[in-house]
């Protein structure tokens, strides 16, 4: 007796008669194929291209070389010279994404808490408004802030006409602003700067933060904090020991999601960040676009960004489950 004989026995067992392809199975097959073609294939393509080779003065060719990955860590001239330019860009990708996502969640949290205490109808109006604001693209938002921060039509103009600029000059603080890169000899300037970059990025994801936090916050059981209050806890103690711990998971989840979303942020960075604080996402585009035609190096950067983001998410998850276990 062999195993093969056993397998042959199996169909003899009573079973529903096969009817060929059921609609459900067909739908499943079609959806899987669509997933494969539109999600997995491009993904594999990026990975494969990242091993390609750039030809100076022309395009790139298929190859199998680790040069692009090496270049990411030490630069093209290695071993004669080392540059950490691309690591620096990766660092700023994380820097901006972390600060902006944390800031968005920190400011959205009290707002959403207050929102859940409003009347049902008012809540609905707010939520519709916030959902509607999601339809604005990054380009649109950046354009808006660009105008709000520009010299003749924005905040610097306000500084000038209200005499604030002159006052800053008189008390001598203007010189400090110039040294910080927040002023030119004529007036204050707010872009390009870290301030403008983080502001726009937080603004961009703020509605997401509210919408992601809302379900969890609206399910908060008020009796918990009431119980704490009857036991004599103050407002801050309640927030710290009751409210925050009970929404720890959605809080972490929201921050991580926004963080990943912001890692790929392009327009805000390319418009508002100074050249020394550009990120990997911007560098990827500048490599792939026509003036360089270096898709292999762009793809290698994309793969590294992806891996770094995955590592971050993994640690986030680990942290969560650790906290859960306690």
């Amino acid at each position: 007796m062999t195993i093969a004989d056993d397998i042959k026995m199996a169909p003899a067992a009573p079973k529903t008669p096969a009817k060929g392809v059921t609609p459900k199975a067909a739908l499943y097959a079609v959806l899987s194929a669509v997933m494969a073609v539109f999600c997995i294939v491009p993904f594999i393509l990026v990975i494969v291209i990242s091993f390609g080779r750039k030809v100076d003065g022309a395009g790139w060719v298929w190859a199998f070389t680790f040069d692009n990955y090496q270049r990411f860590f030490v630069g093209i001239l290695w071993p004669d010279e080392v540059t950490f330019l691309y690591l620096q860009q990766l660092g700023y990708s994380f820097y901006f994404a972390i600060i902006a996502s944390v800031l968005a969640v920190l400011t959205a949290l009290p707002f959403t808490l207050l929102l859940t205490r409003l009347k049902r109808r008012t809540q609905a109006i707010w939520l519709v408004f916030i959902l509607a604001s999601l339809s604005m693209s990054e380009v649109f938002i950046v354009m808006g802030w660009d105008i709000l921060l520009s010299n003749n039509s924005g905040l610097p103009k306000l500084f000038q006409v209200t005499g604030l600029t002159q006052w800053l000059k008189d008390v001598g603080w203007f010189q400090i602003l110039r040294e910080m890169g927040l002023a030119n000899p004529r007036n204050v300037k707010f872009k390009p700067s870290e301030f403008a970059t983080i502001l726009t990025m937080s603004y961009l994801v703020w509605p997401y933060a509210v919408i992601l936090l809302y379900p969890a916050l609206s399910r908060l059981d008020p009796s918990l904090s009431e119980a704490a209050r009857t036991m004599g806890a103050g407002r801050w103690t309640i927030t710290r020991t009751v409210t925050l711990p009970s929404i720890r998971l959605p809080l972490m989840g929201t921050t991580l999601l926004l963080f990943v979303f912001l890692l790929g942020s392009y327009v805000s960075i390319s418009v508002f960040a100074t050249p020394d604080k550009q990120t990997t996402a911007v560098a990827i585009y500048s490599n792939i676009r026509g003036s360089n035609l270096d898709a292999p190096f762009g793809s290698a950067q994309a793969v590294i960004l992806l891996i770094s983001a995955s590592v971050c998410l993994y640690f986030g998850h680990l942290l969560n489950s650790k906290a859960e276990a306690r």
């Binding site: 100076d56 093209i76 001239l77 100074t274």
Partner: peptide, 19 residues
Amino acid sequence: YLDNETFIKESWDKMLAES
């Protein structure tokens, strides 16, 4: 620009990225 493309781009980017 054509024959020394990658070197010029990386050196340029490096110069811009210095704070």
